[in-house]
Design a protein around this nucleic acid. Structure first.
Length: 627
DNA sequence: AAGCCCCAG
DNA sequence: CATTCTGGGGCTT
């Protein structure tokens, strides 16, 4: 999978680079759209979403005045005195719409990875490949924009062309669905990996979609202004890169890998180098329930215990509302606080957590609630934590208070893999295996659904017709006026007796979607037989241009690293491996196989030495502290 | 596991 | 410069 050491020609010729089809969906100015749904009158006005003293996002009308994300309120008002403001400090509604978006995306593939409230990646490789089989010789015409503008997808020998074109159809359908069901507009990027899908999706905004001609990945990257545009490179990484004279993506492409390794360690250096060429082997990681649920409130200055307690009381109440929907019982709580500190440039947070008794929660109609007096117990725990963090004898000055539930009863201690072997009780595993066995399985498969829409469009609708133009005029009005506040609430028609009713709504085909359950389509049989991971890397059944890599994947029995937490090492045959649910397969591959260090591939050992400890960042800061 | 840091939108 | 309100992941202890 590590391809940077190959010649560039060889790299470009290597067909397996484009085997996947990934769609990145990005909701246009998400918070602003949600507020416009709640109050359609806002749609014609410049709108800013305010949190404390800043505009965190704004609609496109406001952007015409020069208002932009994270702008100071005072500055925005200067640029646009008539700016309408909506307070967006409470994220409840955004969370709800975000969950509904996620639910809709899940109808297209189970492989959906959420990034923040408003972005998702979908791995639609399987969907597209099935569609491809039925397509025969016919060459479809793409939807939306292509990058570069005058490029064609036509000349790649790996056959990615048709896959990506089908990807554009799927992307259009996904965006149409989001618009029909929720009244929101979005952008999509279609490419052969996550990095490129995200980057290319932002080329045409808003409410548009763009597909990348894969052979132009490199030039997309080299044309970028800042290395910060590469996901994963933030302020600190940029600084570290600057110190070894890497100022642009082009520099990153050109720097010796060894030099990069010295600063970042093997894993990070390899990834950075790959990214600079548009190579991204990371998998779309299916998002499940959140690992933590948190709330925080920034404030000017709090220096009295009573004030702290009052703030925490409000937060506890709000947090209780959040976990009601989640369905899991929290067993650990964490406080987060920020002290005023003139000496530090970056805001420094302190946290302290404690376990809580699950008995302070009860379940009512599938909802988790605090028992009587539970709120006070929780608040007492929180205040104890606070007093452990802050020396009450001295004066203090708090500028942020936060609370988080960090552990949950239903969450697995040993991770999903361990749990799968111990007892098949894992939520996410079950969620997949349950779809076809509960009587909710649709008559048609996912492909049938897509064919009804996708294929008929191929034959009957005007080719290349742009959704972007159409959607502005068609259903926005009807949708936005339909979505009232009550629509933001969870679906009222909760079905009793559904085996997994307690779980997140998207796991329940009845609850998660207003339309008929037959639209939901996900067959376990298909999922299990199609080993996406083995398809996405060279496999025995597929001839490959990089046999050495294929050998690594097929010759070796899959052996987990010896774990100190497990009594017996588990050895899997490849056959057994393929029987596992895909998300488990994915996690296993991520854990053991990706990336495979060159040295280890050559060695006789089957171990991948766990993590190659890239503590360079930490060392860097320790070193800098001393200077 | 707890606590800190960095990253993302 | 960070600034808001989150959520994920990695590292050291």
């Amino acid at each position: 999978m590590l391809l940077h050491h190959m010649d560039q020609d060889e790299l470009l010729d290597t067909c397996d680079l484009h085997q996947r089809t990934i769609i990145h969906i990005d909701i246009d100015c998400f918070y602003a759209q949600v507020e416009e749904l709640r109050n359609p009158l806002l749609r014609t006005k410049p709108l800013g979403i305010q949190q404390k003293n800043i505009i965190v996002t704004c609609n496109y009308i406001a952007r015409q005045f020069g208002v932009h994300k994270l702008m100071l309120l005072s500055e925005a008002k200067k640029l646009c005195p008539q700016l309408t403001l909506v307070n967006g400090e409470d994220l409840t509604n955004y969370r709800k719409i975000s969950a509904r978006i996620f639910d809709i995306l899940l109808m297209f593939t189970p492989f959906v990875e959420k990034l923040g409230m408003d972005e998702n990646w979908l791995d639609v490789t399987e969907v597209v490949n099935k569609k491809l089989e039925e397509l025969g010789d016919c060459t479809p015409i793409r939807e939306g924009f292509i990058y570069p503008e005058d490029a064609s997808l036509g000349s790649c020998s790996c056959g990615c062309e048709k896959r990506l074109i089908l990807g554009t159809h799927l992307a259009k359908e996904i965006r149409s669905r989001l618009h029909e069901e929720l009244g929101i507009t979005s952008c999509a990027g279609i490419a052969h990996n996550k990095l490129m899908a995200k980057l290319i999706g932002s080329k045409n905004k808003p409410n548009k979609q763009t597909v990348l001609a894969p052979k132009f990945s490199q030039s997309v990257l080299s044309e970028m202004n800042s290395i910060r545009d590469i996901t994963g490179i933030g302020e600190k990484f940029e600084k570290m890169l600057n110190e070894i004279d890497v100022k642009s993506v082009r520099d990153l492409q050109l720097i010796e890998l060894d030099k990069l390794k010295r600063v970042f360690g093997y894993d990070q250096a390899t990834k950075l180098k790959d990214f600079s060429f548009g190579i991204d082997n990371t998998l779309v990681k299916t998002s499940g329930k959140p690992k933590s649920i948190s709330l925080e409130d920034a404030c000017k200055s709090i220096s009295l215990r009573a004030e702290v307690e009052e703030k925490f009381r409000v937060l506890v109440t709000r947090l209780a509302l959040l976990i009601a929907d989640d369905g899991r019982i929290p067993i650990s709580i964490k406080i987060i606080l920020r002290k005023f500190d003139g000496t530090k440039r970056v805001s420094h947070r302190e946290t302290k957590q404690a376990n809580i008794q699950p008995t302070i929660f009860k379940e009512v109609d599938g909802k988790i609630q605090l028992v009587d007096g539970g709120q006070q117990i929780l608040l007492d725990v929180v205040m104890k934590l606070f007093e452990k963090t802050i020396d009450m004898k001295k004066s203090f000055n708090i500028t942020l208070l936060g609370l988080a539930f960090t552990k949950f009863q239903q969450q697995n201690k040993g991770g999903r893999i361990a749990n799968y072997f111990i007892k098949k009780s894992d939520i996410e595993v079950q969620s997949i295996t349950s779809f076809s066995s509960d009587g909710y399985s649709p008559n048609g498969s996912m492909m049938d659904t897509h064919n009804r829409h996708g294929m008929s469009r191929l034959s009957s609708s005007p080719m290349g017709m742009d959704l972007d133009a159409a959607s502005d005029t068609t259903s926005i009005a009807s949708c936005s006026s339909d979505v009232s506040e009550s629509d933001l609430e969870p679906s009222p028609k909760k079905k009793r007796g559904f085996p997994f009713a307690k779980r997140r709504s998207h796991l329940n085909p009845i609850d998660c979607y207003d339309a008929s359950p037959s639209k939901l389509s996900c067959r376990v049989g298909d999922l299990r037989l199609n080993s996406r991971e083995f398809d996405s890397v060279p496999s025995t059944s597929t001839p490959t241009h990089s046999p050495s890599i294929a050998k690594q994947f097929n010759a070796q029995p899959i052996t987990p690293p010896t774990s100190s937490t497990q009594n017996e090492p588990v050895v899997l045959s490849k056959e057994t491996f393929k029987e596992l649910p895909l998300d488990v397969q994915q996690e296993l591959l991520e854990t053991w196989c990706l990336p495979i260090p060159k040295s280890l591939a050559q060695a006789t050992s089957t171990q991948t030495s766990g993590k190659a400890k890239s503590n360079t960042l930490h060392r860097y800061f320790i070193a800098n502290k001393q200077t």
